[in-house]
């Protein structure tokens, strides 16, 4: 059988609505989402950049031509050239290599924050929504208190308290990101709270934890994923802002925000030092936004 034949068979299998298994149904759904993602050029562009970011982060040592930490003061502030594509920084380090490794830092921060925030936000929101009553009141009150601060200011205060460093920055950012997730999870939970299958599960004697995990999580997941994707860009920007104020990653770690900030000192002699990481932040954060926007169109057509 020819290659294209294989693909078209696969396509037909995926697109067919005569499901022969639950697995096929699941694949069908994912495939349709994929097709609409490809059909939306902006969202697809975002997806492509994010994918590229992941590839770069994973294969950073293979892509970077230089050691991102190797200093050579005699080579400081060299303009972009064939040897150093994006020039060198104030310590003579290769900016291209640092940019590549910086992708790791950026990804590390966003993933870590997301991993911390998603379960916390979900548990608080879903518990509030599911149990209702005073639990709801107390949890939502706490959520609102955190929400009443602009996010950067809150992150700033916390990282000042925790001390500079990338782990502390992650915690500080996480503290500002969970409340909207919790609100969303609560709102979603409320819509399912009195659905027949939840009542049925309750009658069968399932515990709160089990109901939340087995029934509520799968239903809330899509909208929370969209929200988290959209949040990625604000996580990146907050991290960059903290790095700019010297509260994020500490040397010699390559982090785009800190790179852009320390490059400002050499703005007039070495424009590339601040321009290059700035464009990187802009690109990645735009990509996450485009992707998130696209995902929302796909999963939640009402607002499309």
């Amino acid at each position: 059988m020819s290659r294209s034949g294989t693909f078209s068979n696969l396509h037909n299998w995926l697109i067919s609505e005569d499901f022969s298994s639950a697995n096929q149904a699941r694949c069908h759904k994912a495939y349709l989402a994929w097709l609409s993602l490809v059909a939306n050029p902006l969202a697809f562009a975002g997806f492509a950049v994010v994918a590229l970011l992941i590839v770069i982060a994973v294969f950073a040592p293979l892509i970077a031509s230089h050691d991102p930490y190797a200093q050579d003061l005699m080579m400081a502030l060299q303009a972009p050239s064939a040897a150093h594509w994006f020039g060198t920084d104030e310590f003579g380090r290769d900016v291209f290599a640092r940019l590549i490794y910086g992708a790791r830092t950026t990804l590390y921060i966003t993933i870590l924050v997301t991993v911390i925030v998603a379960p916390i936000g979900f548990v608080i929101g879903a518990t509030a929504g599911y149990l209702g009553g005073w639990v709801d009141v107390v949890l939502m009150r706490i959520t609102d208190i955190f929400l009443s601060f602009p996010s950067l200011v809150l992150a700033l205060a916390f990282s000042a308290a925790l001390g500079p460093g990338i782990e502390n920055a992650v915690i500080a950012i996480a503290l500002t990101v969970w409340p909207p997730i919790a609100r969303l999870a609560r709102a979603e939970t409320l819509t399912f709270r009195h659905a027949d299958f939840v009542i049925a599960a309750e009658l069968q004697g399932a515990g709160t934890g089990r109901i939340l995990l087995r029934h509520i999580v799968p239903l809330c997941a899509p909208s929370i994923v969209v929200r988290l994707t959209l949040n990625m860009s604000s996580i990146i920007l907050t991290a960059a802002g903290l790095g700019f104020l010297g509260l994020g990653a500490q040397p010699p770690m390559a982090e785009w925000g800190a790179m852009a900030a320390s490059g400002r000192q050499y703005l007039l002699d070495a424009w590339w030092l601040t321009t290059v990481p700035g464009i990187a932040i802009l690109t990645v954060s735009l990509a996450f936004n485009l992707l998130g926007d696209g995902l929302r169109d796909i999963m939640d057509p009402r607002n499309g």
């Binding site: 930490y69 190797a70 200093q71 003061l73 104030e90 310590f91 500079p164 010297g246 040397p251 010699p252 000192q265």
Partner: peptide, 15 residues
């Protein structure tokens, strides 16, 4: 973290 103290520190760190 002020110039030039921090640069001096980063240089020592690398060496």
């Amino acid at each position: 973290p002020v110039t030039p103290e921090f640069e001096v520190a980063q240089s020592l760190q690398a060496n």
